[in-house]
Amino acid sequence: MVKVQELLENRIVSLLENPDYAGHPLSEGLAELFERYCEQTRQIERIAHISDRYQEAERDRHIDTTTRYQRQLRQIAKVMRISDRYQHMLRDMNERLYWISSHDELTGLPNRRQMQAHLKRELQQLAERGGQFCVALADLDHFKAINDTYGHDIGDKALAAIANCLSEHIRGYDLCGRWGGEEFLLIFPHSDTRAAEAILARLHEVVGALVSHQLPEQIVLSVSFGLSACHKGDEALDQILKRVDGALYQAKREGRKRTVVV
């Protein structure tokens, strides 16, 4: 196409340059027409060039937008992934904090706050459905003497050993927590004092037979229990605790290593 155009142009130029046609009216007309043709061809080429530039810029912009879009997409995916991990971390920390706030660090048992919550729940169930449950307060006998003789480190180990022994030998649905110092609280749901006493009798035996390689051989551990049953859902928590505490005190006074039921 370009070649045809070039040949035509060359032909017109040579015709206009031919002295034989100089001054001919058609030659003048052709010269004017050729000039206008050349001008319009230049214009068309310019427009085509500008249009090409626009198309090129548009294509570059499209590539740029696609690249930016893909980059942002990758960034969003990464932000989400990292954010999810932070949330996992927070959830785990929350669980850990919950455990710390509800358990005793030394023995790993539920702490006083947690046991109080369990007691309230048992009372509520009693109020709703009736029945009974038992509460026992345990105290490690001669704990002060162990501490004074062997030091607090051994005292702590004795507490951990007792905690382990008590919690391992109660029934699956019974509860055992550290009440404070050398005291432990036990809850026996849906049980009368006879059933609870039988469990406590077993606990006396296993504690007496407890052998721990972490404790000096000459230490023989024993516990005293105060036990009481709860029948009324509207009974005040303080009153129940006062009752088992009184029973425990009596067990201590009567020579320790025994259970007193009130």
């Binding site: 932000v79 990292i82 954010s83 971390m89 927070l90």
Partner: peptide, 9 residues
Amino acid sequence: LYLNTSSIR
């Protein structure tokens, strides 16, 4: 230590 989502961004 902890960063919220807009801080991660």
